[in-house]
């Protein structure tokens, strides 16, 4: 692990506007953000405030309309689609609210999916998948199909998939949004554990209980950063 003060993300004046019919929607406006290696950040805000848009841009699933985004010291603004695909595959992991598992593939195959597009030799795929599944305590369901899993299990499989490439940064968009409170809590413990093991975590949520796992909370309103502060009361009430 590199030093905790190493800056992994530096975004400057990010804007994203959507052109729909005759109106122009400003999803995020003039956002600047620096994130150090090993941080756990929660992005909060009302519905429609631009949280997901920001996360997608930071996670290379989308591009900003204007602004500069430096990731791991590299200016990514002018990278090609192919280079962005490589970063998605190699440097980051994404966790979605709706899990997005392939329903006709087993747990094992779902977790190995990113490796199909990597340069990692296929004989290592299975061991890596099992290791990732171990970290989310899902090794007992290797050959289950996603429809046979509970919501919490699905999200843990999705987390294992996000882990399999040993990413620098894990992005999670409302990972507990489709789960009940208790299950969501468990998933948050897992994510928190990953952060302790060294992964940088950037999480979007509108639930303060979920956000409270982070060590830093960014609040977004109307596409702009309203506040950006350390989380003093970091989930003490969760530690049972």
């Amino acid at each position: 692990m590199e030093s905790n003060t190493h800056r992994i993300i530096q975004a400057e004046n990010l804007n994203k506007t959507y052109q729909t019919a005759d109106t122009e929607t400003i999803a995020i406006a003039d956002i600047s953000l620096s994130i150090n290696d090993g941080e756990f950040i929660s992005i909060m805000g009302k519905s429609g405030s631009g949280k997901s848009t920001l996360l997608h841009i930071l996670g290379f699933l989308d591009r900003p309309s204007t602004g500069t985004y430096i990731f791991g010291g590299v200016d990514t603004t002018s990278l090609t689609e192919e280079e962005l695909a490589f970063i998605r595959n190699d440097k980051i992991g994404f966790i979605f609210q709706a899990f997005h598992l392939l329903p006709k593939q087993t747990v094992l195959e779902n977790v190995m999916l990113p490796l199909v597009y990597s340069r990692i030799p296929s004989r290592e795929h299975r061991a890596r998948a099992e290791e990732a599944l171990e970290r989310v305590e899902m090794t007992h369901r290797l050959y289950h199909m996603p429809p046979q899993l509970s919501g919490g299990e699905k999200q843990r499989v999705a987390i294992a998939r996000a882990l399999i490439n040993r990413p620098d940064v894990i992005f999670a968009d409302e990972p507990t949004g489709n789960l009940d409170t208790r299950t969501g809590e468990k998933v948050m413990h897992t994510i928190s554990e990953l952060n302790k093991q060294g992964h940088t975590v950037i999480l979007v949520t509108h639930e303060s209980t979920t956000a409270s796992f982070a060590n830093r909370i960014v609040i977004v309103q109307d596409g702009r950063i309203l506040s950006d502060q350390p989380n003093e009361r970091r989930h003490v009430h969760y530690q049972k």
Partner: peptide
């Protein structure tokens, strides 16, 4: 469509 989106999200290129 969703499958395509997911594959791209985990690193599939247009060519893949």
């Amino acid at each position: 469509t969703k499958e395509i989106g997911l594959r791209k999200a985990v690193g599939a290129t247009n060519r893949d």
